[in-house]
Amino acid sequence: MRIEVDDLSRPQVRALLTEHLADMHATSPAESVHALDLSGLRGPDVSVWTAWEAQVLLGIAALKELSPDHAELKSMRTTEAARGQGVASRLLGHALDNARRRGFAKVSLETGTQDYFAAAHRLYARHGFVECPPFGDYVLDPSSTFFSLSL
């Protein structure tokens, strides 16, 4: 598996992001969906990586700078065919290594509270994330839970 910086121009990547947003809207109330769309992921404060096996897309992860010492993990998604193969863990590790190199002291994230997100909660816990209060512009929301990791 190779992980590379992505410019979001490839059709496979766009399709995975479309699937991701559709699933977020299918599992959470609209006001609780905080996933970035394509234009949001192209912001100057966002870095995006994709994981590939040959020409097959396996997953995506993004890191958004909130301040010089705080970043937010965004758009973690693994393709259905690649689930259970460690892709999300590798992408998360890659994003966290990048955050450390860039000098961030903390990485936070928001995810859903529904059963659909249970695997994500386990992934973040395995990597040392702990629940935290809302951060940045987030507010308390029964459909959102927040995690952070001190680097």
Rank of each mutant, 00 (worst) to 15 (best):
S39V: 15
G93T: 07
L63H: 02
D97W: 07
S150K: 00
L41A: 02
L63V: 11
A35C: 11
S47V: 12
T111H: 04
G112M: 10
A26F: 07
L109E: 02
G103D: 15
A95C: 14
L109A: 05
K106P: 08
S47Y: 00
R122I: 12
S143Y: 15
H25D: 01
D23R: 14
D23Q: 15
A61L: 09
A82F: 02
S32N: 10
P44Y: 07
D97G: 10
G59R: 08
E31P: 07
E31G: 05
L123T: 06
E65M: 08
E53I: 12
R90S: 00
E110F: 03
L73T: 10
D45H: 13
H70S: 03
M24T: 11
S28N: 15
G43I: 12
K64E: 14
S144E: 05
R100P: 05
H25A: 02
S89I: 05
E72P: 10
G112D: 02
A61D: 06
G136Y: 05
L57C: 10
T145H: 03
E131V: 15
Y124E: 11
M24I: 14
K64I: 14
S28H: 12
L123N: 03
P142W: 04
R42G: 11
V130E: 01
A119W: 08
H121F: 11
S143I: 06
P29F: 01
S150Q: 09
N98G: 08
T111G: 10
D137A: 11
R42T: 13
L92D: 04
D137S: 13
E131C: 13
T145C: 11
N98V: 15
T50R: 01
Y124A: 08
L96R: 04
T111C: 03
V48C: 12
G93L: 04
C132S: 02
D37A: 08
Q55P: 14
A125R: 12
S150H: 02
D115Q: 02
V33I: 13
H70A: 01
H70G: 12
V33D: 04
D97M: 11
E80S: 06
P133N: 12
D141E: 08
L38N: 07
V46S: 07
D37H: 03
Q55I: 14
F117L: 09
T27D: 04
S32V: 15
T113F: 07
S39W: 13
V130N: 09
R77T: 03
A118I: 12
L73V: 10
G136C: 07
A82N: 05
R83I: 11
A99L: 10
R90H: 08
V139A: 06
T27M: 07
L109T: 01
H34P: 01
L63G: 00
R83P: 01
N98I: 13
R122L: 10
T145P: 00
L123E: 05
A35W: 09
G86T: 07
S150T: 14
E53C: 12
G59D: 06
N98P: 00
A120S: 02
H121I: 14
